[in-house]
Design a protein around this nucleic acid. Structure first.
Length: 338
RNA sequence: GGGCGGUUACCGAAGUAGUCAAACGGGGCAGACUGUAAAUCUGCUGGCAUACGCCUUCAGAGGUGCAAAUCCUCUACCGCCCA
């Protein structure tokens, strides 16, 4: 059976993937499958950098807004409210098949490296191997104890996983406990039904950092902080938001901090209250400034980590202009027809 | 003009005679990672060397001393206080 061609546009955050992806998909009769772990959630728009509804009308986008963030911790949130990689891969495969069947070209666009890898290389993912309460229990244990347990049930993972990384140790144990099979058992790649064509957007580090910084500021102007405030008001747990990292972590921590300030102000006569309020506002502005600077640094760090992942992937063809990307795509599609 | 306090690596900041190329944090750089991944974790960060190690640093110049980022003198700059 002939493999489905997959044009993948990837790169670090803020490098211009979305606009390039839209441009190329529109030009070459394609549709976009978003490869982003946070854009799947409804209501996480500005902070996750989701393309606008208007842009979505130009080219169809898949895997955006396909899950609700968790509202409080109910029985429903057995999985911690996460849309898992297993969920994601299943939906992506379906979307790709659907696009192809309708005679269009699937364009995968995004920066969540693991998700891209899982789809492109058809990772075999055990479903339902999540047990939040077990996880919580394991996280409370001493790391030495966890390591000893892991060594016993899964020596391969024990040898591979960084012994300082509790989270991954817990995860390996969790998989073993839920499925009865060692974590390492699942680490096999299936035959891929796709013929991937990977294009990476290359950009000098300094320029990328500048773009990141400017984008944080412009998103604040677009109401990114209000977006998080609204999510919290609607009952989305702040712990969940924090676990998403970057924007949602920084902003929800900041909001918690500023909401605390007025409570600290003692009951005062009206004559002095004005001055105090000014101080409170001043402190709030200071916190916001600090939060945004820290956020920018955290995104720099994130972009670096994305690059580490991408640099390992030798199939990527790096381009520094949309023109070059266009040429590559055209050539790839032309070769397909022959 | 007088008094006091300060000046440490890219930044912030410890160190107040030997164990100091100098804690710690931030930034930066390099990396691990099959599933919560925009998460989680690791290493490096004065220069040269694979390494033993060698060299140049703690505002500047001089001095004391076996030995100075640390003590003394002067100079420059910054901050606060008195004029």
């Amino acid at each position: 059976m002939k493999k489905i061609p997959l044009i993948v546009i990837l790169g670090p955050t803020a490098c211009g993937k979305s606009s390039l992806g839209s441009e190329l998909a529109k030009k070459y009769n394609g549709e976009i499958v978003s490869m982003d772990s946070r854009q799947v959630y409804r209501g996480l728009d500005i902070g996750s950098g989701k393309v606008t509804k208007k842009e979505q009308r130009v080219v169809p986008h898949h895997l955006l807004d396909i899950s609700d963030p968790p509202k409080r911790m109910t029985a429903r949130v057995r999985h911690g409210g996460y849309f898992t990689l297993a969920d994601f891969k299943k939906k992506a495969d379906a979307a790709i098949a659907d696009i192809w069947k309708r005679g269009k070209i699937p364009f995968l666009v995004g920066g969540t490296a693991l998700y891209i890898q899982a789809v492109v290389d058809n990772y075999a993912i055990p479903e339902g191997a999540i047990d939040i309460s077990l996880r919580k229990r394991l996280e409370g244990e001493d790391i030495k104890k966890l390591l000893k347990a892991l060594e016993k049930v899964d020596p391969i993972s024990y040898g591979k996983i960084d012994h300082a990384n509790k989270r991954r140790i817990v995860r390996a144990l969790e998989v073993y406990c839920v499925t009865g099979k060692p974590f390492s058992f699942f680490q096999q790649k299936g035959e891929s039904p796709y013929e991937p064509f990977l294009i990476g957007i290359d950009m000098p580090r300094e320029k990328l950092y500048d773009r990141i910084d400017m984008r944080v500021d412009s998103r604040v102007r677009q109401g990114m902080i209000r977006e998080v405030e609204r999510l919290i008001q609607n009952g989305v747990p702040t712990d969940w938001l924090k676990s998403l990292g970057l924007e949602y972590r920084g902003i929800s921590e900041y909001l918690k901090k500023v909401n605390v300030i007025p409570a600290k102000v003692p009951d005062l006569s009206t004559s002095t209250r004005v001055g105090i309020n000014r101080n409170v506002r001043g402190a709030g502005i200071q916190f916001k400034k600090e939060m945004l600077q820290k956020l920018k640094y955290a995104i720099h760090h994130f972009a670096r980590r994305q690059m580490v992942w991408f640099r390992k992937e030798k199939r990527i063809q790096w381009v520094s202009s949309s023109h070059k990307a266009d040429q590559l795509v055209r050539k790839f599609l032309k070769n397909l027809q022959t």
